[in-house]
Design a protein around this nucleic acid. Structure first.
Lengths: 217, 217
DNA sequence: GTCTATAAGGAGATAGAC
DNA sequence: GTCTATCTCCTTATAGAC
């Protein structure tokens, strides 16, 4: 084991001095996190290898020592972003006996998250579009939507179960409905920043979902 | 008036011969249409000045003679795409005494359009994202959503009027709801191409909209 | 008006010194 | 392992010949 960190001092950001020695695994880790920061802050088009290396405080050579290509590091970062977003959504689940209250609370929590971190929403859409135009990234977009649809379906099922009701329409379709409405609503809000109207839409969505249940049996 | 077309023969695509003389206005026109074709086919990132010039069958110099920058030509093309899409959506309006039937038919027509021209949907989202990352394009995204929201509001109002009913919820919010759901649904379909599930969502949306009305009075 | 040639800069990737 | 220097390619934009 010769690849280990010889110092506990943090990385220098400027990259002006000599770098701390670090295992390739840790380096990759740092670079992926740097990529995520650049993606969220500046977008996919500006997440160049140079920008990523600078953000991580390493030189271009180091990046290419740890990753074979820009595509590889972008893909890693995209998957991690998706998983993190899906996990955050699961955290936001609220359930209880009152179906309307748990749906309303979950949607509010989701919406607070979007408003707090618009860049993360944005980069999600950018990555989807990027994946649709670059065949080698196709799985990235599919990974996104598989997970998002799963999360919404779990959310609906958990809410219904806690409230002792069941949906009268197919839950996978309803999950796609919810995912679509929230996706589109976020995009629209990113453009016109009309938070009041957006919350009205969330209320309408809540009403609709509540109308789709019947007592379990 | 020395700027006029001296020949009726069509442009050569290869750009290998001498170009037909054409007024600057007609040239701009041709170049904007070429830009739209490249945008739809290859996406925003690949709509370079070279790709556009090649598509129009002119040299780079000609493009820069007609437009000061790539930004200018992209902006023109984006606005035209948006207006065209909004106009197409208005064409799809169906109204009649049966509210459910007219909503269902309008949504089907919309959906047929998405499936027939996925590239146009895609470039719409790309342009939104591009605009959100480039301040000088901010108005492009705002132009898009203003128009789309208007179209959906007009659609809802026309459908309700023809059926002799009125909505029990604020129509601007409902328009945003419909726009969001359709936007998100299209994106999701672009990724997983699950047309069956998508149509189920359209049916759910139809149900919901029908449930939002009461007899006019 | 049209076109070639080129400037000027940014990109991904790599070779090779240390 | 790290870093500099560089290759090669592609971009936008422009100057100047025809």
């Amino acid at each position: 084991m010769t690849n280990f960190s010889v110092s506990s001092e943090p990385e220098r950001e400027g990259g002006c001095g000599r770098m701390v020695r670090m295992s390739s695994k840790d380096r990759r880790e740092e670079l992926i996190e740097a990529t995520i920061r650049v993606l969220v802050r500046d977008g996919v088009a500006r997440a160049t290898t140079r920008a990523i290396a600078a953000e991580a405080g390493v030189t271009l050579g180091v990046l290419h020592y740890c990753f074979t290509s820009r595509a590889e590091i972008l893909e890693e970062a995209a998957k991690r972003l998706t998983d993190r977003k899906a996990a955050a959504a699961r955290e936001a689940f609220a359930s209880g006996a009152d179906l309307r209250a748990s749906i309303a609370r979950s949607l509010r929590t989701f919406w607070t998250g979007v408003q707090a971190a618009p860049g993360e929403e944005q980069v999600g859409y950018e990555l989807t579009q990027y994946a649709l135009r670059n065949e080698e990234f196709e799985q990235v977009a599919q990974h996104q939507y598989e997970h998002y649809l799963d999360v919404h379906q779990e959310f609906l099922e958990a809410a219904a179960r806690s409230a002792g009701v069941e949906f009268t329409v197919p839950v996978p379709a309803l999950a796609r409905f919810v995912n679509s409405t929230l996706d589109g609503l976020s995009m629209c809000w990113l453009v016109d920043r009309d938070g009041k109207r957006a919350e009205e839409v969330l209320d309408l969505l809540t009403d609709y979902l509540v109308s789709c249940v019947a007592p379990a049996g």
